[in-house]
Amino acid sequence: MKRYALFLGCTIPARQPNYELSARKALTKLGIELVDLAETTCCAPPPVRSIDLETSLAVAAYNICLAEEAGLDLVTLCSGCFESLSVANNMLKGDEHLKNRINRVLSEVGKEFLGSRSVKHYLQVLVEDVGIERLKRNVSRSLSGLRAAAFYGCHALRPSGLLGLDDPERPRILDDLIEALGAESVEYRNKLKCCGGLLRGYSDELALDLAREKIINASRAGADCIVTLCPFCFVALDMGQLQMRSRYKETYDMPILHYSELLCLALGADPKELAVQTHKVKIDKVLDKVL
């Protein structure tokens, strides 16, 4: 059994129990042991990077130190955490001068970044540690007939040189994982375009314009749902649809699912156990199709 330190970050425990619950259930069922670390903090994502880059690197490195001390690699459910931690991990591993500079900061809290561990998004764990073939063998409820629009968002893929999750222009990982469950991964226009999530709070109008385009393009392609791998993309598209109703006077009804929720359904979970009431756009259409 492979063990990982689960890095939850902020937004998932604060707002998305459905994501945490489904990810824990699915990974555990597939033989991945998750360890919760004490004393973690915010991962220092783009909002913190916008304020001070050095601080964001130091905070990310501090959290990696906790995993190093526990002798574990890190797994994240959030693309923001994945990006912050991976960028810091790989920048410091590749730049002795920067590593020393950040370690001077970390010495204030008795830590030293060694660069001995890796950071993974849970989709990588599914592909690399569980494997697509073993995943397929564990599917007890095939999702055949379901048309799912894979949405990668930005921060799982880019900057690709420091993340290395998949090809930033032609990724396959999420499509392959969707198809392993028996569902069809549908192609749609501007599939790789941003959800606008990071503009929320600064320019809600622009953020919503970007999210709306995703919903429209997935609808036109005949998708039954959009599948995300990041809590910020989830909010932008799920909560976003309520805001679109009032702003554009248009009604959308596109269920948004975390990949881990889809995975739990395929592994035979009862939706009642998955806190699906957290979704702003009800997912009944998807459940009717797969149950």
Binding site: L21, A38, E39, T41, T55, V109
Partner: peptide, 28 residues
């Protein structure tokens, strides 16, 4: 939200490293 975790079957949250973070934020 923290209290509700147990009813959902989620483990309790481990404490946040506020003190360490404060020292890092002051060092930078």
């Amino acid at each position: 939200v923290e209290k509700k975790r147990s009813t959902l079957g989620l483990p309790p949250l481990k404490p946040t490293g506020v003190e360490a973070l404060t020292r890092i934020l002051s060092a930078t």
